[in-house]
Amino acid sequence: MNRFSYLRATSIDEAMREAAADPTARFIAGGTNLIDLMKYNVERPTRLIDITRLPLNGIEETESGGLRLGALVTNDETAFDSRIQDRYPLLASAIQAGASPQLRNAATTGGNLLQRTRCYYFYDPETPCNKREPGTGCPAAFGRNRIHAILGTSDHCIATHPSDMAVAMAALQAIVHVRGPGGERAIPIADFHRLPGEHPEIDNTMLHGEIITSVELPPDGFSRNYTYLKLRDRLSYAFALVSVAAALRMENGTIAQARLALGGVAHKPWRDPAAEAMLQGQPATEDRFRAVADHILKDARGYQDNAFKIDLARRAIVTALSQAASGTPQSQIDKRIQ
């Protein structure tokens, strides 16, 4: 644990101003990931700006008929909010699939989006890691990589993004609202997280000093035909090996619109618009689902321990699309696959 100075911000402007003044300052809210990483000396901010008292904690209707989640709304509040459960059950389900009740009581919307990878090497400062220390190498690619990525990897990093919430938000095409020294920006979630490329140390497209203020959920919540299917190494309280958020709009037995996002397989929630287009106007058949899965995974690359994820992801996509099409979403309580 490194030493830091502490500031309890009383306004968004103050928080931004303080952050801008110190390149090593970090915002902190739920703390469930930042404190975790600070205890491992992976994160070493010298100044922490506590944003928990800022007015960013409501769930509000938007003019377009969607909902706006304040950045500080906890995962628990979101998952059990009746509006979310009615209109965005995919999001509620995904959040319930993640972490534990205690962590969901602390973790916030903004923090969840910003959580960092669970890569063993990233978490262990005694080992090399390009994400933690650029240029030191990626031992995961030649080491233990059961939990690592199969899509969008680079020679520099094969880490995954660990969030469940963000996967559902990707399928829902949420918009991340940020404020910073340069003003406000609305970032489509697809553009929020990035692939590792040559700079795995950069997780997302936010700039220093910017603060997430809210996440906007567009009006269409796909509340009839959806599922969040998470596969992991035990039945609860574990990160995803592979997860699939599937959202369909069915019209007369055919798929009018499809959204599909994968977790646990890439450096960001993985979307493939071309694959989604393959479903549009099609009947919901397993053959079609398989073709879509094959398309999504055509460039997938497995490593020593995680090659199984390619097959697992293929199967999970087919199952998830079937669940969504038939309106039988995966329960996060009953561990039978629906």
């Binding site: 902190i28 703390g31 469930t32 404190i35 628990d76 009740p101 205690q102 962590l103 009581n105 602390a106």
Partner: peptide
């Protein structure tokens, strides 16, 4: 509300 006290300053 229940929380992990290890994850809070």
């Amino acid at each position: 509300r229940r929380l992990n006290s290890c994850m809070a300053f």
